[in-house]
Amino acid sequence: MSQTAHAFDIKSASLDLLALLLKTADPAELQTALDARFGNTTETASEAFLLDLDGLPNAMELPLAELLPLFSRYGIRVVGLRHSSRSLAALASQHGLAFSQASTPPRGTLAETAAPEAPVVAAPVAAAPAQAPVSVPAQTLIIDRPVRAGQQIYARGGDLVVLAMISAGAEVIADGNIHIYAPLRGRALAGARGNLAARIFTQSMEAELVSIAGVYRTIEQRLPESILGKPTQIYLDSERLVMTALGE
């Protein structure tokens, strides 16, 4: 909006990564295993990976200088290390990698849980002291103009507050709660990333569709008089969407 020239903006971002859980530090053994899994070919497209070292008895002695080129031959581009002990942070920064401290020492339950849990800084800066990503408190997005048909507003990671009406055919989405201090005539989807406790509040309930954490309801029939056009809240009560008048 502003014409002021900024060289850059800092915005929050999260990246889905694959984690590679190492069970041995021996390069020869790893190469055999990688060959068996990915074949002998050189991958051109490289995928970002997080190297999880919690399965290794002596992670400090990991020959990273030797392993990183080996991984990259198979298209595994390591962008960070994960370990339950902070002592590995130095090793990560030596190699220009980000470091993420595993939240719970999952020793013993390493078997197949390859799902990435911690977001990792995407561009590691070698010189900076590596740090576990700090979770920034979610921002509330405030919109003070009408959201018209065909427009969509998404409050990523936080709540959404709208001070003007949401027209029929418009869509507002938030990962947290949605507050609308005007009529809601379009669609409102709260808890878009699965927050079951998210709620929708509106000063005048006339919505086309409401959804909380993926449980949605299209409103084709006329709403009951108790909430139609009245201040209303919408929440989830064990898989069931509940719409009730506010202030009762």
Binding site: P146, V147, R148, A149, G150, Q151, S167, A168, A170
Partner: peptide, 9 residues
Amino acid sequence: RDSDRILGI
């Protein structure tokens, strides 16, 4: 409805 869309644009 179409006017609403144009107002948004």
